[in-house]
């Protein structure tokens, strides 16, 4: 009786195996096809606007009046770059020093509390960061802007958006950095110390140098996440269509443009194509930064 069952399971194994394999291949192909499909559908929808003669005007034009058929996207692109750049400048020192402190200096119990805090921040819905930005960051930036005699004293600005975006992306970058710094072996530390280096010299000259590719890649991925941050930025950036020149100026990044206007995109001719194009640009920026981070890692791996 038992023997018979055994034989049956052998007989079934091949089809089950085949089914599993096929299922995995299907799952994999969905993951591979999805970004391409999104990219192509955006391209398809934006196509009516993509006239080679007008491309320059689209990307670098600053006039945005959909009802007149003017779709200059440069205010949005420049706002996006500006916000992500400010976010990065805030992120680099804060993330690096926290990662170094947590992995190198903090007593174990403090490091455990800090890690828990980072995980909570990482799981926080970004609308909360946005709301918090509105009630705290915006007034602070507004006061500062007044003191500086800025044109826009409201506080809804590139700076406020940069701060909020850095806070929402930081846990993500920090987790990558923590993993990196933990990959430093105690032997490497002993090696540096045994030459007479202080702990800080070992970190500065040896660990940072060794982890450089990983650190650059982490921040590059952080950048691409900054570009995509939508709701928190939208809530504090001011949403004024202009090319921001100072950190106190209001801006209007690409994700905010999409989130604010997708409801009415069918009301004006070509409006939908313009929004799809801006979505495509956003996607390309994110893909570019991801590619860059892989490139950085490859470059250093080849050298090592």
């Amino acid at each position: 009786m038992k023997l018979k069952n055994y034989k049956m399971s052998i007989a079934l194994r091949k089809p089950i195996e085949l089914f599993r394999k096929t299922w995995m291949q299907i799952a994999l192909s969905i993951i591979l096809i999805l970004p391409l499909a999104i990219g192509f559908s955006l391209l398809y929808k934006a196509w009516p606007l993509l006239n080679p003669d007008d491309l320059g005007k689209l990307l670098f034009g600053s006039v945005w009046s959909p009802s007149q058929g003017n779709f200059g996207l440069f205010p949005f692109i420049s706002s996006s770059v500006f916000v992500a750049g400010v976010g990065l400048i805030i992120m680099i020192p804060v993330c690096l020093s926290s990662a170094i402190y947590i992995t190198q200096f903090a007593p174990r119990w403090i490091s455990r509390i800090l890690r828990a805090a980072i995980d909570i921040l990482a799981g926080m819905p970004s609308v909360i960061f946005g709301l918090w930005g509105v009630i705290t960051i915006v007034p602070i930036v507004g006061n500062w802007a007044k003191q500086q005699g800025a044109q826009n004293p409201t506080g809804y600005s590139i700076l406020a958006a940069g701060i909020v975006v850095s806070i929402s992306v930081m846990p993500y970058v920090l987790n990558m950095l923590l993993e990196l710094f933990e990959s430093v072996t105690s032997e490497l530390k002993e090696t540096a110390l045994s030459l007479g280096a202080s702990h800080w010299q070992a970190i500065k000259d040896v660990f940072l140098k060794k982890l450089k590719p990983g650190i650059i890649a982490s921040f590059t991925l952080g950048m691409s996440k900054s570009f995509g941050e939508t709701i928190a930025v939208l809530m504090v950036v001011g949403n004024v269509v202009q090319i921001p020149a100072r950190i106190f100026d209001a801006g209007y990044p690409l994700p905010a443009l999409l989130a604010n206007n997708y409801g009415e995109m069918m009301s004006i001719p070509m409006y939908d194509a313009a929004l799809m194009l801006s979505a495509l640009i956003l996607l390309l920026i994110v893909v570019f930064f991801n590619y860059l981070s892989h490139k950085v890692i490859r470059h250093y791996q080849a050298k090592a």
């Binding site: 072996t185 032997e187 490497l188 002993e190 090696t191 540096a192 040896v206 140098k209 060794k210 450089k212």
Partner: peptide
């Protein structure tokens, strides 16, 4: 040490 640990 046991294994060589060259610095970067």
């Amino acid at each position: 040490s046991q294994r060589p640990h060259p610095l970067p």
